[in-house]
Amino acid sequence: MANQVRESRPRSVHAWVAYELGTRIVSGVYEPGEYIPNEAKIGEELNVSRTALREAFKLLAAKGLIESRPKLGTRVRSKDCWNMFDSDVLKWSFESTPSPEFLRSLFEVREVIEPNSAALAAKRATPEQIDEIEKAYYAMEEAEIGTEDVILTDIDFHMAILQATNNEFMVSLGQSIKTALKGLFRISSSEESEFVASLPGHKAVFLGIRDGDSERARFEMKSLLSKSVHRALDSLPGDSDVDVAV
Rank of each mutant, 00 (worst) to 15 (best):
M140F: 05
R24D: 10
L90K: 02
S105A: 14
E128V: 09
L207E: 15
K178S: 11
L207R: 13
G33C: 07
V89Y: 01
C81M: 13
E34H: 11
S12A: 07
A164K: 01
S87W: 05
F107D: 04
D211N: 14
F206M: 15
I36N: 02
A245D: 13
S188W: 05
P115S: 10
R104I: 04
P115H: 05
A197S: 14
G22A: 05
R110I: 03
E114M: 08
R210L: 13
A122H: 04
N166Y: 08
G208M: 03
E128Q: 13
A121Y: 02
A136R: 03
L21H: 02
L207H: 05
F157E: 03
F57C: 01
M170V: 10
R124F: 05
R104V: 07
D241C: 07
L207I: 15
L225Y: 03
A160Y: 05
Q129C: 04
V244N: 06
V5E: 14
A61C: 04
S198Y: 04
L59A: 13
D239M: 03
L181G: 11
R210I: 06
N47C: 07
A121K: 00
G33E: 07
G183V: 04
V5M: 12
K182R: 15
E101G: 00
R186K: 13
E114D: 13
R77K: 15
F195I: 09
V171K: 11
V76N: 02
A136S: 15
A164T: 00
V242W: 05
V150M: 06
F107K: 04
K71D: 10
A164E: 00
R9W: 11
S8R: 14
M84F: 12
G33I: 06
F107A: 03
Q129T: 01
H14R: 06
M221Y: 00
E215V: 10
E31H: 12
A15H: 09
E55H: 12
T153V: 04
E7T: 14
A139S: 14
I177R: 00
